[in-house]
Each structure stands twice: as structure tokens, then as C-alpha cells.
Amino acid sequence: MSKKYEIRLTGSGGQGLILAGIILADASLMQGINAIQSQSYGPEARGGASKAEVIISTEEINYPKVQQCDLLLCLTQKSYNEYIATLKNDGILVVDDSIEMTEISSATIYRLPILQTANEELKKPMVANIISLGAITKILNLVKEEMVLKAVLNRVPPGTDLINTTAFNKGVSLIK
């Protein structure tokens, strides 16, 4: 059976969402699933609205841009406000629990303490992207956890393996 997921990861510039998108695409390819990662960006390197897009599919992917998301991740209020309308009615919403949700949606909603886990529990704000990746991997249940973790370790800076592994596993465990 063919499966295609259009995924949009949103937050602010500097949160490492593009890297998270690349890792998810990497892991998909490792497992023999097609993937395309793309992004859109503004002039700011830090702080502006940022989105990374990944399409993963068991079939060939033609159009490389996400149109209606099957899964939307929002790490900031601003990104939630901007992108919530692009989520499919039966899609999956993953939001940080600091975000005030204004829209009533029929989507499956995961409201998770991603930023809190990064900032307070792990004391590393920059691993919010990897925590998110752990949660998304668990939710999608398409690309294997060990593949994603392997892809994480291929892409993160040397010497950060332990913290990123911890972050990934934390993300997985946020999904009950």
C-alpha cells in the first residue's frame, strides 16, 4: 500500500528545523523510502519564521513542495498562527505546549512539552529539534526509530552524540 506524508516543521529561525527535516529525509532514504526536503526562508538568519518541509513517500515524488500537511509541527505561537490553516482536516498536529491553540480542528493533536524538556530537563535549548524528531518518528510509525537515530548521529556535530541520543529518546517517550 502506498503511503505519502507531507510534513511541515515550523518555528523560528535558529531552532534547527531544517536540520531536523534533512535528518528525517536521510533516514527515509536509508530505509528505502523516497524523500524530498525543502525549505522556505526569509532574509533573517535567526529569529524569523522558519519552515522546513519533508515529503516522504513509498512512491516517486514529483511536486517537491508541501501543499496540505499530513503532519504539522509548530514550536512557536507565530508559526502556529501562520501555518495552522495548511493542515489537512484529518492531519496530525504536533504543538509545543506553550502554544495557545485558537483554532478548533478535527486534526489529531499532540500537545507536548518539547521546549520545556529541552530548556529545563536537558538544559540544551538547541535540542528541541531532535526531541521533536523523536516524537514525530513515534507518531508516524513509518521510518524506524533506529534509522532516524542513526541519521541524527550522522548529522550532528561530533561530541554531541550523547545529548542528542537522550533528546531523541525523550521525544519518543513523550508519545504514550
Partner: peptide, 9 residues
């Protein structure tokens, strides 16, 4: 910009 910046197999 799209094909220059996208990542693909």
C-alpha cells in the same frame, strides 16, 4: 531556487 535548494535522493 526550488531545485537548487531542495534535497533529494
Amino acid at each position: 531556487e526550488i531545485i537548487g535548494h531542495m534535497r533529494e535522493k
